[in-house]
Design a protein around this nucleic acid. Structure first.
Length: 938
RNA sequence: GAGACUGUAGCUCAGUUGGUUUAGAGCAUUACCUUGACAGGGUAGGGGUCGGGGGUUCGAAUCCCUCCAGUCUCACCA
């Protein structure tokens, strides 16, 4: 069969994924084998595949495929998240485009639309994951709002309530005016933004009481004015004298007026600073610090809110920072958490002036119906016109925005459901701190601890329809929490009497936070509240792979729920991936347009190419600077492997050894490659354990391309037109086969294809279910020997290059006689291999330097290469000088160490020994080099 | 304000508990080779006083202190 000159990714992917599905290789059911389970971080049901998913899911697939090859029962559970806010927003937008307002629909009608939408677009992302090669057990596909999951969510809510770990409370919440729902603290993203600080003055209400100072000043002014008037009419002595008297009076009058103005300002006005002038209509106090001398006289006084004229008390509270602004603070308990706290302390009225959609309501009295930001401008203008605006200064402050809609969060007083987190956090904190649940990388333990130790209650109700409706029923002041309405009714009857009917009970209108269902994911996907089911086999799962950005939103809560309901950890390891950024380090985002189309990438570079690209640049926990070039490299790697296959498949095979020499060469090469492979497998194994997958990828890339292709295949490659012996051929095929299995987790498609091309396979034999090779015993001596061989070949090539000799021009080479040279050649095949790879006509021992030759040192051996042309003495001298320089410097540093008595006495014997060996080798080499230089003449 | 992390080649990063040549890889770059698997190839090279300064040690990219630069998390002052 003739193979195409290029690897065709599309064809291969279209061929093998369905095959794997047909064979049900991804499916898992409990059996005797060790379980290896991963639950997917469920993407939004209506989401599309982006780079973050690619990274995340490639990693999971690698781990799952590796576990499968290791003979474990690998189970990767896929699924999607109903993404309450995001999905509802999408549906609302779609309906609006069709001219339908959410408000005009009943809950049931809206949900019908939402389900239609979900059915139409939902799970698209899972289809896209298949393109990436994700080997999920698709039969297990779960959805956070499907029947099984929903039932568990409701049960959990009821259970928490019954345990007293859930409550409903009136609190200051984060309100998203765009989505029109409350958010948890974790769903608010804070960032510094440029804004303005407005200085506003409030009139102080003195109840008609006059300031004695002002009265006195007023009198003084009047008197001065009188005197001045008189002075103008009268004449005092000389004209000069009169003029000076009048000037004096004028000065005094001006002074008095200035003082009066200042005093009047201080007496009648109080200036505050605020970022939000539009909230002044909700002011119910002005607060100053109790120790602030500037305001001590205002005790018991009231201030008049500008524009609306409400009189509010001036209160004294430690919370106020005297240094900030004017030291006076307007208190708006309805629209600021701190103000709310102050309000509680001072029994202040709460006047909520903002509607749920962020517009001003009738309590604001003015600008009713305008948006809060528009209102800010309008109020500013009003204040300016009416003379209440003192100053505006630029001000940078942290603004909280909704994670989903980006809307500026409005603090708002509201009645919501909360989970009492302090009651469930403890085991989860301990588990991570003791590494029972192990984080990779470890640094996230700190972040986790800090959050867990300062954990705040979790607001779980959302004013949405798309989600799990809260199973709480109300009857007047009573609350009944139960899994069904009937059960709630039974509770109500028990408490209030039999006259209560279902119609009397009112179910809570709200739904639960999306994360309230996803925090159960590690066991809910196995229907884990039921005892004795599959959950016992798969739970705790092996590893969770997710971005560090949802460590609180999701990871921490899963750990808590795991301990709360399963009594144990949900997963053993957590692998935190970094964020995908572009080459310039910017976060990938739609608005920047720097996020590549994931599917397009797969089309262009193949799934394997993209997987390689994503993996070769993603150290665990570090951010991933994505560059398409890496995918190109991956695609090139596929092509390289493909062509190596073509090379081998193109060889003619001889059943018996073709020559004794070549047999030796090939045997040595095979021995060495096996050793090198073992060493690489050891590395890979170690790196897998530490989740250093980019290292694994690079290890393999280097081994396959370098050791296997560039060295091994070049060594065993038969001369053009000659056949290869059967034994070597089979060995090469076997090596290639093993390598395909090792690489399979990272690049599943190309490896499966090549694996099949290498040998005739029986039904049910596939790379995906083959066996991951284990490292054999490593012969360091052989590896070292081969390093010297490689070094020798490289140096001869260099000599050719420096002397403009063709790579295939036969050369005569010699090695300096001696015991170590004997030893070097005693490893069978060494000489023959060198001859073949360095294109040497001969390689013999010699006791003296041959004429017209250049020399070099490899390992501890001195080699000579005879050159059939005039040696470029200068170039040769330069080469030797350079090497001599290096060695002398090196020897110098070694000597320094060995000359240091304290080093010799204190360092471990092994280290000293090693230094001595270095010293000997270097000294010997230097001697040789010097001799060679001497021979070159001066 | 509290805490965490990072700084190594032009770029992205390794360097695994301080000692296997005077620091490695990939990409980029330079020179040369290339009709016989692969131009998405081959061969060879250039390139770093490991952010600065101090200290501990026989020995520091690695440990400690300090400064500089940058990133992030949490909490927040109107």
């Amino acid at each position: 069969m003739k193979l195409a000159t290029r690897y065709n990714a599309q064809e291969t992917e279209a061929k093998w994924y369905p095959h794997w599905m047909d064979k049900k290789y991804f499916a898992s059911t409990p059996d005797d084998r060790e379980a290896f389970a991963i639950v997917i971080p469920p993407p939004n049901v209506t989401g599309i595949l982006h780079m973050g998913h690619m990274l995340n899911n490639t990693i999971q697939d690698i781990l799952i495929r590796k576990a499968r090859l290791d003979g474990k029962n690998a189970c990767w559970v896929p699924g999607t998240d109903h993404a309450s806010i995001a999905t509802e927003a999408k549906v609302v937008r779609k309906l609006r485009a069709e001219g339908i307002k959410k408000g005009d629909l009943t809950r049931e009608e809206f949900l019908k639309h939402a389900w239609d939408w979900t059915d139409e677009y939902g799970g698209k992302i899972l289809t896209q994951l298949r393109k990436l090669g994700a080997s999920c057990d698709w039969d297990r596909t779960a959805f956070t709002m499907d029947e099984v999951r929903s039932k568990q969510v409701i049960k959990i809510f009821v259970d928490l309530f019954n345990k007293g770990k859930l409550y409903r409370g009136l609190r200051m919440v984060n309100w998203d005016p765009e989505a029109q729902t409350v958010l948890s603290n974790e769903e608010v993203i804070y960032g510094d933004e440029d804004s303005l600080l407005y200085h506003l003055r409030y009139k102080i209400d003195h109840n008609g009481q006059e300031s004695p100072t002002l009265v006195r000043l007023e009198k003084k002014i009047k008197k001065l004015q009188r005197l001045l008037a008189q002075g103008k009419r009268k004449t005092y002595g000389s004209g000069t004298y009169q003029r000076s008297v009048i000037a004096g009076l004028r000065r005094m009058l001006a002074d008095a007026q200035r003082t009066y103005a200042a005093e009047s300002e201080a007496y009648n006005w109080l200036t505050i600073a605020t970022k939000r002038p539009e909230t002044i209509m909700g002011d119910t106090a002005i607060a100053v610090h109790p120790d602030d001398p500037r305001y001590a006289h205002l005790k018991g006084k009231r201030a008049i809110v500008p524009l609306i004229g409400r009189a509010v008390p001036i209160i004294f509270d430690d919370y106020v920072d005297m240094e900030f602004g004017t030291g006076a603070l307007k208190v708006t308990p309805a629209h600021d958490p701190n103000d709310y706290e102050i309000g509680l302390r001072h029994n202040l009225e709460v006047i909520d002036t903002i509607n749920d959609d962020g517009t001003m309501n009738e309590k604001a009295q003015i600008h009713i119906g305008t948006d809060r930001f528009e209102a800010r401008e309008l109020v500013k203008k009003d204040l300016e016109t009416a003379g209440f605006l003192v100053a505006i200064e630029p001000y940078t402050s942290s603004i909280g925005r909704s994670e989903r809609t980006g809307a500026v969060v409005e603090p708002k007083l509201s009645l919501q459901w909360y989970v009492d987190m302090k009651k469930i956090a403890d085991p989860a904190l301990k588990a991570v701190m003791s590494d029972e649940v192990e984080f990779f990388p470890k640094k996230y333990k700190n972040t986790y601890r800090h959050w867990m130790e300062n954990i705040r209650d979790w607001c779980i109700s959302r004013q949405l329809w798309w989600g799990h409706r809260i199973p709480a029923w109300y009857y007047e002041e009573e609350t009944f929490v139960a899994e069904t309405a009937e059960e709630a009714l039974a509770l109500a009857k028990a408490k209030l009497g039999d006259q209560i009917t279902l119609a009397d009970l009112q179910q809570d209108e709200d739904v639960l936070d999306t994360w309230f269902s996803s925090w159960l994911w590690p066991f809910s996907v196995f229907d884990g509240l039921e005892e004795g089911g599959e959950v016992d086999y798969y739970y705790p799962t092996s590893v969770l792979v997710t971005g560090w950005d949802i460590i609180f939103l999701w990871v921490a809560r899963m750990i808590m729920s795991g301990y709360e309901w399963k009594g144990t950890l949900p997963f053993q390891h957590v692998y935190f991936t970094g964020m995908v950024r572009d080459k310039q380090g910017r976060k990938m985002s739609k608005s920047l347009g720097n996020s590549p189309d994931a599917l397009k990438l797969i089309e262009d570079y193949g799934a394997d190419g993209v997987r390689f690209g994503v993996m070769s640049s993603s150290p665990a926990g570090g951010d991933l600077l994505f560059d398409k070039k890496l995918c190109e490299q991956g695609a090139a790697f596929c092509n390289k492997m493909w062509n190596a296959l073509r090379l081998i498949k193109g060889w003619e095979i001889a059943e018996s050894p073709v020559s004794e020499d070549l047999a030796k060469v090939n045997a040595l090469a095979a021995k060495w490659l096996a050793q090198s492979l073992s060493k690489t497998l050891e590395e890979i194994d170690k790196n897998f354990q530490e989740y250093r997958l980019s290292e694994v990828t690079m290890d393999l890339y280097n081994f396959i391309w370098g050791d296997f292709f560039s060295w091994y295949l070049e060594i065993i490659k038969p001369p053009y037109g000659s056949p290869i012996d059967r034994k070597t051929y089979n060995q090469a095929i076997d090596f290639f086969e093993q390598l395909m299995t090792v690489l399979h987790p990272i690049m599943p498609f190309v490896t499966e294809e090549i694996w099949h091309q290498l040998k005739d396979r029986k039904e049910g034999e596939d790379c995906i279910v083959s066996q991951f090779p284990k490292a054999g015993k490593i012969d360091e001596k052989l590896l070292k020997q081969f390093d010297v061989i490689k070094d020798t070949i490289t140096k001869i090539r260099e000599i050719r290059q420096k002397n403009s000799l063709k790579s295939y021009e036969p050369l005569k080479a010699f090695i300096q006689e001696g015991t170590s040279a004997q030893q070097f050649f005693s490893i069978e095949g060494t000489k023959e291999l060198l001859q073949k790879m360095a294109a040497l006509e001969s390689l013999d021992f010699t006791s003296k330097e041959p004429t017209n030759s250049v020399n070099f040192i490899a390992g501890t051996e001195q080699f000579y290469v005879e050159i059939n042309k005039t040696i470029d003495v200068e170039a040769e001298r330069a080469r030797l000088d350079k090497e001599l320089d290096y060695l002398e410097g090196f020897l110098n540093s070694v000597n320094k160490k060995l000359g240091n008595e304290r080093f010799v006495n204190n360092a471990p014997a092994k280290v000293v020994e090693n230094e001595r060996k270095k010293q000997q080798d270097a000294t010997a080499k230097i001697a040789i080099l010097k001799e060679s230089l001497a021979k070159l003449g001066t």
